[in-house]
Protein backbone atom coordinates (compact mmCIF):
# COMPACT_ATOMS: atom_id res chain seq x y z
CA UNK A 1 0.00 0.00 0.00
CA UNK A 2 2.79 2.39 0.99
CA UNK A 3 4.58 1.88 -2.29
CA UNK A 4 1.41 2.61 -4.22
CA UNK A 5 1.11 5.90 -2.37
CA UNK A 6 4.75 6.62 -3.16
CA UNK A 7 4.15 5.93 -6.84
CA UNK A 8 1.05 8.09 -6.72
CA UNK A 9 2.96 11.01 -5.21
CA UNK A 10 5.84 10.77 -7.65
CA UNK A 11 3.31 10.74 -10.51
CA UNK A 12 1.53 13.78 -9.10
CA UNK A 13 4.91 15.50 -8.81
CA UNK A 14 5.64 14.75 -12.46
CA UNK A 15 2.19 15.92 -13.47
CA UNK A 16 2.64 19.23 -11.70
CA UNK A 17 5.98 19.61 -13.44
CA UNK A 18 4.14 19.33 -16.73
CA UNK A 19 0.84 21.06 -16.02
CA UNK A 20 2.10 24.29 -14.45
CA UNK A 21 4.51 25.09 -17.31
CA UNK A 22 1.80 24.04 -19.75
CA UNK A 23 -0.80 26.43 -18.32
CA UNK A 24 1.78 29.22 -18.24
CA UNK A 25 2.65 28.40 -21.83
CA UNK A 26 -1.01 28.60 -22.79
CA UNK A 27 -1.21 32.08 -21.27
CA UNK A 28 1.90 33.16 -23.15
CA UNK A 29 0.74 31.58 -26.39
CA UNK A 30 -2.49 33.59 -26.29
CA UNK A 31 -0.35 36.70 -26.05
CA UNK A 32 1.87 35.51 -28.91
CA UNK A 33 -1.17 34.75 -31.04
CA UNK A 34 -2.59 38.24 -30.59
CA UNK A 35 0.82 39.79 -31.10
CA UNK A 36 1.52 37.99 -34.39
CA UNK A 37 -1.98 38.77 -35.56
CA UNK A 38 -1.44 42.44 -34.78
CA UNK A 39 1.94 42.62 -36.51
CA UNK A 40 0.53 41.17 -39.71
CA UNK A 41 -2.14 43.85 -39.68
CA UNK A 42 0.39 46.60 -38.82
CA UNK A 43 -1.03 47.12 -35.35
CA UNK A 44 0.80 46.94 -32.02
CA UNK A 45 -1.25 44.30 -30.26
CA UNK A 46 -1.29 43.92 -26.47
CA UNK A 47 1.77 45.84 -25.28
CA UNK A 48 0.75 47.57 -22.05
CA UNK A 49 0.68 45.04 -19.21
CA UNK A 50 4.21 44.00 -18.29
CA UNK A 51 7.24 43.96 -20.63
CA UNK A 52 6.02 43.74 -24.26
CA UNK A 53 2.56 43.12 -22.83
CA UNK A 54 3.60 39.64 -21.69
CA UNK A 55 1.24 39.68 -18.72
CA UNK A 56 -1.81 40.57 -20.79
CA UNK A 57 -3.23 37.05 -20.53
CA UNK A 58 -2.78 37.07 -16.75
CA UNK A 59 -4.67 40.34 -16.57
CA UNK A 60 -7.41 38.87 -18.75
CA UNK A 61 -7.58 35.76 -16.57
CA UNK A 62 -7.89 37.96 -13.48
CA UNK A 63 -10.73 39.83 -15.11
CA UNK A 64 -12.52 36.59 -16.03
CA UNK A 65 -12.19 35.33 -12.48
CA UNK A 66 -13.99 38.32 -11.02
CA UNK A 67 -16.77 38.28 -13.60
CA UNK A 68 -20.09 36.76 -12.65
CA UNK A 69 -20.85 33.31 -14.04
CA UNK A 70 -24.25 33.60 -15.65
CA UNK A 71 -26.21 30.39 -16.08
CA UNK A 72 -29.24 30.84 -18.35
CA UNK A 73 -32.50 29.92 -16.64
CA UNK A 74 -33.67 27.66 -19.45
CA UNK A 75 -30.37 25.86 -19.81
CA UNK A 76 -29.64 22.29 -18.85
CA UNK A 77 -27.54 23.23 -15.83
CA UNK A 78 -25.52 20.06 -15.25
CA UNK A 79 -24.40 19.75 -18.84
CA UNK A 80 -23.92 23.50 -19.12
CA UNK A 81 -21.44 23.46 -16.25
CA UNK A 82 -19.87 20.19 -17.36
CA UNK A 83 -19.06 21.38 -20.90
CA UNK A 84 -16.11 23.72 -20.17
CA UNK A 85 -14.78 21.23 -17.63
CA UNK A 86 -14.81 18.49 -20.27
CA UNK A 87 -13.08 20.71 -22.81
CA UNK A 88 -10.36 21.74 -20.39
CA UNK A 89 -9.78 18.24 -18.98
CA UNK A 90 -9.53 16.65 -22.41
CA UNK A 91 -7.12 19.34 -23.55
CA UNK A 92 -4.87 18.67 -20.55
CA UNK A 93 -4.94 14.84 -20.27
CA UNK A 94 -3.58 14.34 -23.74
CA UNK A 95 -0.28 15.92 -22.69
CA UNK A 96 0.43 12.86 -20.55
CA UNK A 97 1.81 10.91 -23.51
CA UNK A 98 3.76 13.68 -25.26
CA UNK A 99 7.49 12.87 -25.08
CA UNK A 100 9.60 15.98 -24.44
CA UNK A 101 12.79 13.98 -24.68
CA UNK A 102 13.75 10.35 -24.63
CA UNK A 103 13.32 10.13 -20.85
CA UNK A 104 10.95 12.98 -20.07
CA UNK A 105 7.48 11.58 -20.68
CA UNK A 106 4.81 10.91 -18.07
CA UNK A 107 3.21 7.84 -19.65
CA UNK A 108 5.20 6.09 -22.37
CA UNK A 109 2.33 3.86 -23.48
CA UNK A 110 2.36 1.45 -26.40
CA UNK A 111 -0.52 3.06 -28.22
CA UNK A 112 0.46 6.69 -27.61
CA UNK A 113 -0.60 7.99 -31.00
CA UNK A 114 -3.98 6.24 -30.75
CA UNK A 115 -4.46 7.79 -27.31
CA UNK A 116 -3.76 11.24 -28.73
CA UNK A 117 -6.14 10.58 -31.58
CA UNK A 118 -8.85 9.27 -29.26
CA UNK A 119 -8.60 12.22 -26.87
CA UNK A 120 -8.63 14.75 -29.68
CA UNK A 121 -11.72 13.07 -31.12
CA UNK A 122 -13.39 13.35 -27.71
CA UNK A 123 -12.77 17.09 -27.76
CA UNK A 124 -15.92 17.61 -29.78
CA UNK A 125 -18.06 16.68 -26.78
CA UNK A 126 -17.21 19.81 -24.84
CA UNK A 127 -18.45 21.89 -27.74
CA UNK A 128 -21.60 19.86 -28.42
CA UNK A 129 -22.51 19.81 -24.73
CA UNK A 130 -21.96 23.55 -24.37
CA UNK A 131 -23.98 24.34 -27.45
CA UNK A 132 -26.88 22.08 -26.63
CA UNK A 133 -27.10 22.87 -22.94
CA UNK A 134 -27.24 26.62 -23.58
CA UNK A 135 -30.71 26.09 -25.06
CA UNK A 136 -30.29 28.95 -27.46
CA UNK A 137 -30.19 28.97 -31.22
CA UNK A 138 -26.74 30.37 -32.00
CA UNK A 139 -24.83 28.08 -29.66
CA UNK A 140 -26.78 25.13 -30.99
CA UNK A 141 -26.03 25.97 -34.62
CA UNK A 142 -22.38 26.45 -33.70
CA UNK A 143 -22.14 23.14 -31.92
CA UNK A 144 -23.78 21.26 -34.78
CA UNK A 145 -21.38 22.84 -37.24
CA UNK A 146 -18.41 21.95 -35.13
CA UNK A 147 -19.55 18.34 -34.64
CA UNK A 148 -19.78 17.79 -38.38
CA UNK A 149 -16.52 19.62 -39.01
CA UNK A 150 -14.45 17.83 -36.38
CA UNK A 151 -15.72 14.39 -37.32
CA UNK A 152 -14.92 15.03 -40.99
CA UNK A 153 -11.41 16.25 -40.46
CA UNK A 154 -10.59 13.51 -37.97
CA UNK A 155 -10.88 11.03 -40.83
CA UNK A 156 -8.16 12.68 -42.87
CA UNK A 157 -5.95 13.15 -39.79
CA UNK A 158 -6.36 9.43 -39.08
CA UNK A 159 -5.19 8.48 -42.56
CA UNK A 160 -2.23 10.87 -42.32
CA UNK A 161 -1.28 9.25 -39.03
CA UNK A 162 -1.45 5.84 -40.73
CA UNK A 163 0.97 7.17 -43.37
CA UNK A 164 3.48 7.99 -40.67
CA UNK A 165 2.86 4.73 -38.82
CA UNK A 166 3.66 2.74 -41.96
CA UNK A 167 7.12 4.29 -41.94
CA UNK A 168 7.61 3.69 -38.21
CA UNK A 169 6.07 0.33 -37.44
CA UNK A 170 5.05 1.28 -33.92
CA UNK A 171 2.28 3.23 -32.22
CA UNK A 172 4.60 4.50 -29.50
CA UNK A 173 5.36 8.22 -29.73
CA UNK A 174 8.97 7.79 -28.61
CA UNK A 175 9.50 5.21 -31.37
CA UNK A 176 7.93 7.59 -33.87
CA UNK A 177 10.45 10.27 -32.97
CA UNK A 178 13.40 7.88 -32.92
CA UNK A 179 12.48 6.56 -36.37
CA UNK A 180 13.14 10.07 -37.72
CA UNK A 181 16.81 10.06 -36.77
CA UNK A 182 17.90 9.62 -40.37
CA UNK A 183 15.36 11.88 -42.01
CA UNK A 184 12.44 13.85 -40.67
CA UNK A 185 9.15 12.67 -42.10
CA UNK A 186 8.35 16.16 -43.36
CA UNK A 187 10.74 15.55 -46.27
CA UNK A 188 9.36 12.29 -47.72
CA UNK A 189 5.79 13.02 -46.61
CA UNK A 190 5.62 16.75 -47.27
CA UNK A 191 2.12 16.76 -48.84
CA UNK A 192 0.86 14.86 -45.79
CA UNK A 193 2.37 17.52 -43.54
CA UNK A 194 0.50 20.24 -45.41
CA UNK A 195 -2.77 18.33 -45.16
CA UNK A 196 -2.13 17.58 -41.49
CA UNK A 197 -1.56 21.26 -40.81
CA UNK A 198 -4.77 22.31 -42.54
CA UNK A 199 -6.75 19.52 -40.88
CA UNK A 200 -5.32 20.58 -37.53
CA UNK A 201 -6.64 24.08 -38.17
CA UNK A 202 -10.08 22.62 -38.80
CA UNK A 203 -9.87 20.24 -35.87
CA UNK A 204 -9.11 23.03 -33.42
CA UNK A 205 -11.69 25.40 -34.95
CA UNK A 206 -9.06 27.94 -35.87
CA UNK A 207 -9.52 30.48 -38.66
CA UNK A 208 -10.07 30.01 -41.60
CA UNK A 209 -12.22 27.14 -40.33
CA UNK A 210 -13.67 28.81 -37.24
CA UNK A 211 -17.25 28.42 -38.41
CA UNK A 212 -18.47 27.08 -35.05
CA UNK A 213 -17.73 30.49 -33.57
CA UNK A 214 -18.09 32.66 -36.63
CA UNK A 215 -18.86 36.00 -35.04
CA UNK A 216 -20.47 37.45 -38.13
CA UNK A 217 -23.14 34.75 -38.31
CA UNK A 218 -23.41 33.07 -34.93
CA UNK A 219 -22.42 35.76 -32.37
CA UNK A 220 -19.79 33.58 -30.70
CA UNK A 221 -21.05 30.12 -31.57
CA UNK A 222 -21.18 27.65 -28.72
CA UNK A 223 -19.59 30.15 -26.31
CA UNK A 224 -22.35 32.74 -26.63
CA UNK A 225 -24.04 31.98 -23.30
CA UNK A 226 -20.83 31.50 -21.33
CA UNK A 227 -19.26 34.12 -19.15
CA UNK A 228 -16.58 34.57 -16.55
CA UNK A 229 -14.39 31.65 -15.58
CA UNK A 230 -16.39 29.15 -17.63
CA UNK A 231 -15.70 31.11 -20.79
CA UNK A 232 -12.04 31.33 -19.81
CA UNK A 233 -11.93 27.55 -19.43
CA UNK A 234 -13.25 27.06 -22.95
CA UNK A 235 -10.62 29.48 -24.09
CA UNK A 236 -7.77 27.80 -22.21
CA UNK A 237 -8.89 24.41 -23.45
CA UNK A 238 -8.96 25.64 -27.01
CA UNK A 239 -5.43 27.02 -26.86
CA UNK A 240 -4.14 23.93 -25.04
CA UNK A 241 -5.64 21.90 -27.90
CA UNK A 242 -3.90 24.09 -30.45
CA UNK A 243 -0.59 23.59 -28.65
CA UNK A 244 -1.30 19.86 -28.58
CA UNK A 245 -1.89 19.80 -32.33
CA UNK A 246 1.40 21.66 -32.82
CA UNK A 247 3.13 19.12 -30.59
CA UNK A 248 1.53 16.28 -32.54
CA UNK A 249 2.69 17.82 -35.81
CA UNK A 250 6.22 18.22 -34.57
CA UNK A 251 6.32 14.64 -33.28
CA UNK A 252 4.88 13.14 -36.45
CA UNK A 253 6.72 15.23 -39.03
CA UNK A 254 9.40 17.45 -37.52
CA UNK A 255 11.29 14.88 -35.51
CA UNK A 256 10.09 15.74 -31.99
CA UNK A 257 13.01 16.52 -29.71
CA UNK A 258 15.70 15.60 -32.29
CA UNK A 259 18.15 18.35 -33.11
CA UNK A 260 18.00 19.73 -36.63
CA UNK A 261 21.80 20.24 -36.78
CA UNK A 262 23.66 17.16 -35.69
CA UNK A 263 27.08 18.77 -35.04
CA UNK A 264 28.91 20.25 -32.10
CA UNK A 265 27.32 23.28 -30.53
CA UNK A 266 23.77 22.24 -31.44
CA UNK A 267 23.80 18.59 -30.40
CA UNK A 268 24.64 19.63 -26.83
CA UNK A 269 21.37 21.54 -26.42
CA UNK A 270 18.84 19.32 -24.60
CA UNK A 271 15.91 17.83 -26.51
CA UNK A 272 13.01 19.72 -24.89
CA UNK A 273 14.48 22.98 -26.20
CA UNK A 274 14.22 21.83 -29.81
CA UNK A 275 10.80 20.34 -29.19
CA UNK A 276 9.47 23.62 -27.78
CA UNK A 277 11.10 25.51 -30.63
CA UNK A 278 9.30 23.32 -33.18
CA UNK A 279 5.98 23.72 -31.37
CA UNK A 280 6.50 27.49 -31.40
CA UNK A 281 7.33 27.43 -35.11
CA UNK A 282 4.11 25.55 -35.89
CA UNK A 283 2.14 27.84 -33.60
CA UNK A 284 3.42 30.94 -35.36
CA UNK A 285 2.25 29.35 -38.62
CA UNK A 286 -1.17 28.86 -36.98
CA UNK A 287 -1.22 32.51 -35.93
CA UNK A 288 -0.15 33.72 -39.38
CA UNK A 289 -2.89 31.72 -41.05
CA UNK A 290 -5.40 33.34 -38.71
CA UNK A 291 -4.22 36.75 -39.80
CA UNK A 292 -4.01 36.27 -43.55
CA UNK A 293 -6.69 33.81 -44.68
CA UNK A 294 -10.39 34.73 -44.91
CA UNK A 295 -13.00 32.41 -43.46
CA UNK A 296 -14.25 29.49 -45.53
CA UNK A 297 -17.86 28.94 -46.45
CA UNK A 298 -19.34 25.90 -44.76
CA UNK A 299 -19.94 23.82 -47.88
CA UNK A 300 -16.42 24.61 -49.08
CA UNK A 301 -15.09 23.36 -45.76
CA UNK A 302 -16.96 20.07 -46.07
CA UNK A 303 -15.96 19.70 -49.72
CA UNK A 304 -12.32 20.27 -48.85
CA UNK A 305 -12.42 17.65 -46.12
CA UNK A 306 -14.29 14.87 -47.86
CA UNK A 307 -13.64 15.38 -51.56
CA UNK A 308 -10.05 16.60 -51.59
CA UNK A 309 -8.18 15.71 -48.42
CA UNK A 310 -9.63 12.25 -47.88
CA UNK A 311 -9.01 10.89 -51.42
CA UNK A 312 -5.62 12.54 -51.61
CA UNK A 313 -4.39 11.17 -48.31
CA UNK A 314 -5.74 7.72 -49.24
CA UNK A 315 -3.84 7.91 -52.53
CA UNK A 316 -0.71 8.97 -50.70
CA UNK A 317 -1.19 6.06 -48.30
CA UNK A 318 -1.16 3.67 -51.24
CA UNK A 319 1.94 5.38 -52.65
CA UNK A 320 3.78 5.23 -49.30
CA UNK A 321 2.88 1.59 -48.78
CA UNK A 322 3.91 0.63 -52.33
CA UNK A 323 7.19 2.52 -52.07
CA UNK A 324 8.08 0.94 -48.75
CA UNK A 325 7.12 -2.50 -50.02
CA UNK A 326 8.96 -2.20 -53.33
CA UNK A 327 12.23 -0.98 -51.81
CA UNK A 328 11.87 -3.40 -48.92
CA UNK A 329 11.88 -0.61 -46.34
CA UNK A 330 8.88 -1.81 -44.34
CA UNK A 331 9.73 -1.80 -40.62
CA UNK A 332 9.03 -5.52 -40.11
CA UNK A 333 9.90 -7.19 -36.87
CA UNK A 334 10.19 -4.04 -34.77
CA UNK A 335 8.16 -4.77 -31.71
Amino acid sequence: MIEYINILFSEIYKLLFLLIPLLTAVALIVWLDRRVWAFVQKRRGPNVVGPFGLFQSLADALKYMFKEIIIPASSNKTIFILAPIVTMTLALISWAVIPFSESFVIADINVGILYLFAVSSLGVYGIIMGGWASNSKYPFLGSIRSAAQMVSYEVSIGIIVINVLLCVGSLNLTDIVLAQKKIWFIIPLFPMFVIFFISALAETNRPPFDLPEAEAELVAGYQTEYSGMMYAMFWLGEYANILLMCAMGSILFLGGWLTPFNFFPFDQIPGPFWFILKILFLFILFALVKAIVPRYRYDQLMKLGWKIFLPFSLLWLVITASYLFYFNLLPVGQQ
Partner: peptide, 18 residues
Protein backbone atom coordinates in the same frame (compact mmCIF):
# COMPACT_ATOMS: atom_id res chain seq x y z
CA UNK B 1 -4.90 -1.18 -24.89
CA UNK B 2 -5.34 -1.33 -28.67
CA UNK B 3 -8.95 -2.51 -28.32
CA UNK B 4 -9.61 0.08 -25.63
CA UNK B 5 -8.33 2.91 -27.79
CA UNK B 6 -10.24 1.63 -30.83
CA UNK B 7 -13.37 1.55 -28.69
CA UNK B 8 -12.76 5.19 -27.77
CA UNK B 9 -11.99 6.31 -31.32
CA UNK B 10 -14.72 4.42 -33.15
CA UNK B 11 -17.60 4.37 -30.68
CA UNK B 12 -17.06 7.48 -28.59
CA UNK B 13 -15.29 9.61 -31.17
CA UNK B 14 -17.47 8.88 -34.17
CA UNK B 15 -20.57 6.73 -33.61
CA UNK B 16 -21.76 8.41 -30.41
CA UNK B 17 -21.17 11.87 -31.88
CA UNK B 18 -23.52 11.08 -34.75
Amino acid sequence: EFLGMMMLIVYVGAVAVL
